[in-house]
Every structure is written in structure tokens, then in C-alpha cells.
Write a protein that binds this DNA or RNA. Structure first.
Lengths: 239, 239
DNA sequence: GTCGAATTGTCAGATAGCTGACATTTGAAC
DNA sequence: GTTCAAATGTCAGCTATCTGACAATTCGAC
């Protein structure tokens, strides 16, 4: 009985772990070891996963859903730093550095994630060079994403920033083929935080894009109809 | 003769490698192996180390000097992404991802650096989990630095951004004790790029700080006299 | 020393974007 | 269905910051 139940748990955990970018071409044995140190956690849309100041005790692997990572500037502005998609890790930063969280993580959609204790994670990395390298590569892309965002923020002009942010977002969820409308589950306030502009100005820019037929504005989401229209900056030089 | 010369070379390389954060507590043997794949390069103030679009063939370890990493936004704005100090690595991002450079690296002061080929570096990481972890931690701090910069950019108000940027810069070169004047070898244009503001507005903010006695403006550098004055935001709420 | 390019100091006008305010719409909870 | 909080749409005035322009300084090269 005991054994049976344990096996079920492990199988569930295995499911959780399956398909993680990080664990491609890892041996079966390693997978099992990894599954054993994993806890499955479910979060509903809007739930917080961690907050600034929390002790960084865990690392998370996202199986389903979408997580937004935000920072809070001193003057109370929320800033969207990153959006995590299925198959990615997050929360490693604090874990690696053993400092309290400086950011907050919140579920944008109902989410399923695997939680791993910091020590276990670190041991995993230490004994598994391949995995270290994968994590390293993941960090690399994230660094690039953030650098790109920094560049975007400086090349001011809110409409441009909004366009580029949308392009990034649809590129990030390349689960579907291009030329298919993509729904982005963010409020206009979220987008404003992402591009570092006021909600009002962001709304104006989005409306502009709607007139041009590039996107369709819904209640809590934005549907990108024709990505190419977003990409083609020439279209928008006029206004 | 041959052997003698080789030994000198290796010793020089060893010198180069000594004191690198990355290689603390690495075995003597590993050090030698590492020294063998290293090339010493010298660059003068203002020299470029790599440019956007270059193939990413090498990783660099900085022994002496200071390197600025910049990105170029589409509208031609140069953006200062990071400043590398002695003992740090840079250029790993491209190396890990095998994509062309997206940033430029330029020497702010005369610099001595060790160059390592991408393949060698990757092999080094794969066989040396400890080192992977170190690189990972380095990435972590860099990510945090950039995130902090992003936050700074959004909490607008140029004077505040300038103050905070200066604080970051002196914290980064904590080679000297606090309470000692620290020289920051950046032009006002560099600072402007760092905080994402125009040169003129940055100059105004710096002048303001000079009046308050916090800094002293020199020709191509800024001397921070009293770091505490910079940190104390209350002092500047008035104007 | 003189020269010249790079850096700094400082204006005044133009403007993108912010703040605050308000009406409207949406969808979920009851 | 009704109700209510959250999200959206839009306006007008205000202000921080940008652009462009020009003189003054610095320092290395000659």
C-alpha cells in the first residue's frame, strides 16, 4: 500500500517534470532522483507565489500557466520584469545567491508548478554539469530579454515601446504557428508596467494599434491579429 | 629553450588568472590546465573589445582596468548596460548561446584581459561543476544589477536616477574603504547613457550634486566626496 | 608653446507624457 | 437577474525632459 502510493506520487511528479526544457537528455535515473525532491503546487490566477523580502527557499519549475515577475520601484511603481512560460524555471536567482527575494511572482493564469528546495537544487547542479549548463543558458536568455527591455525603455516613445513589447510577448509564446491570432492575457495596466508608461498613455497607443487592425482589445486581454503589422515600424512612422 | 620559454608563458598566464573571482578554490592542476588555454590581451583606453554583430568566439576575464558594456537602441541611443571591474568575466553570454554579439565592449581604462575560446570555456564548465556554479552566481548578480537599473529607469526623475547610479558605481568598486573619495572615470555623456537621460539634463543634475558638496566634477571623471550625501535622498527632496 | 577635438556648462522653446478626474464597460459573485 | 469591483476609454492642464544652439574649458598631439 505504502509502496503503491509512493509510486503514484513519483509518477505524478515525473509528469510534472517531463517536458521541462531544463531536463532534456537527462538520464532516467537522474529524472527519478529529481522527481523525488519535487513538490507539486497549484496556484490560481492572481495568486502570489512569492513576495519581495521572502526568504528564498525554493526554486520553481513551471509546468502550466504563465507567471509574471515584477519589481517595485521606491516610488511605488510596479515594474514588470519578466513573464515566465511553461517549461521554464524561475526563482533560481535568490536560490543561487541566498538573499531574500527582491521581486514578486504572481500567476497570470491558473498554474501548476514544481517546487524544489534550494539545497536540493544546488546539489543537483553540483552533481550534474549538463544541467548547470542548461540553467546557465536559461539565464543567458533571460539576461538578453531584460537587456532588450532596457533598450526599449530608453528609446522612448510609448507607442513604439508598446508595439515592441507585444512582439516580444507573442514571440515568447511561440507555441502556435505564426499567422494565427495570439491572445495575450494581460491587462492594460500590466502592459503599462511592462513598458514603463502610464496606463492612460498605454491605452492610447493600444487604441491606435486597434484602429490599424493589428490588435483587438478585449476585457483582460489583447488579441494580436496580424503580428506583421506590429513588426512593420514603417506603418506607424506617420503618427 | 623551447621548454623554458613555454614555462614563462604559462607563468604569465597564471599571473593573469590569479585573483579571478571565478577561480577561487580551484585545484592547482585545474589552474594549469586553464592557464594553457588562455591568451593575454592588452587594450588601451577607448579600444573596442567586441562590437555588435561580431561572432561570439571568446570569453574574457578582466585582470586590470574597467570595461563598459553598451547596447545600441534602434534610434541610435547608446545605452550603458554594465561596467565590468577587475576579477570579473564578460562576454560569456554570447559564448554560451552561440549567437552573434548584441552588445559592444569598450575599455574605459587601459586594460589587461585573458581571452579564452568558446569551446575551451564550455568544456571547462562541463568538467568543472564548481566553476559552473560560480559563473551562475556571477550571472545572478549581473541580472540583479540590470533589474535594479530597469527599476531606476522607471522611477523617473533624472536627478534621482543620477544619484542612484553613482551610488551603484561606487558600491561596485568597493576596493577602497568608504569615507574615502572615489573617482569614477566616466564622462557626463556616459552617465547620461547609464541613466537614460540627455547629456544636458544629466549635467544639470550633477551640478546640483556638486553644489551640495556630494561630488566634484572633473574633466573626464566624477569624484564622489561624501557617498552618504548621495544616499540620503531626503537631502534632495527640496529641489 | 599652438591647435583642435572632445568634453563641459547653460540657455530658451517645443513636446511627450504624467496626473487627476470622470464616465463607461465588463464579468464574476450573489 | 442585480450589484460591485476591476478594467477600460478619454479629456485637459501641467511639468519634466528633450532638442538645438552656442560659448567655455580641458588635454593630448603636433
Amino acid at each position: 500500500m505504502q509502496a503503491r502510493e509512493e509510486s503514484v506520487k513519483v509518477r505524478t511528479r515525473l509528469w510534472c517534470i517531463n517536458g521541462l526544457n531544463l531536463l532534456r537528455d537527462v538520464s532516467e535515473e537522474e529524472m527519478l532522483r529529481f522527481a523525488a525532491i519535487t513538490r507539486i503546487v497549484e496556484r490560481r490566477r492572481g495568486d502570489m507565489i512569492y513576495l519581495p523580502g521572502d526568504a528564498s527557499q525554493s526554486v520553481y519549475f513551471l509546468k502550466e500557466g504563465r507567471i509574471k515577475i515584477t519589481g517595485l520601484s521606491e516610488d511605488g511603481h510596479e515594474v514588470l520584469l519578466d513573464i515566465i512560460g511553461p517549461g521554464e524555471i524561475f526563482g533560481e536567482l535568490g536560490a543561487i545567491q541566498e538573499t531574500p527575494r527582491t521581486t514578486a511572482a504572481q500567476a497570470l493564469e491558473d498554474a501548476v508548478l514544481c517546487e524544489v528546495d534550494r539545497e536540493d537544487f544546488e546539489e543537483m547542479l553540483a552533481t550534474n554539469p549538463q544541467m548547470s549548463l542548461k540553467v546557465l543558458k536559461g539565464f543567458g536568455s533571460r539576461l538578453k530579454r531584460i537587456e532588450a527591455q532596457l533598450l526599449r525603455l530608453i528609446s522612448k516613445d510609448v507607442p513604439t515601446r508598446v508595439r515592441e513589447a507585444l512582439v516580444d510577448l507573442i514571440d515568447a509564446q511561440r507555441t502556435v504557428r505564426p499567422e494565427v491570432p495570439v491572445k495575450i492575457g494581460l491587462t492594460q495596466q500590466d502592459v503599462a508596467n511592462l513598458v514603463g508608461a502610464s496606463r492612460q498613455e498605454t491605452a492610447r497607443a493600444l487604441k491606435e494599434l486597434e484602429y490599424s487592425g493589428a490588435v483587438e482589445l478585449r476585457y483582460r486581454s489583447i488579441v494580436v491579429r496580424t503580428p506583421d503589422k506590429l513588426r512593420d515600424r514603417a506603418l506607424f512612422n506617420g503618427h
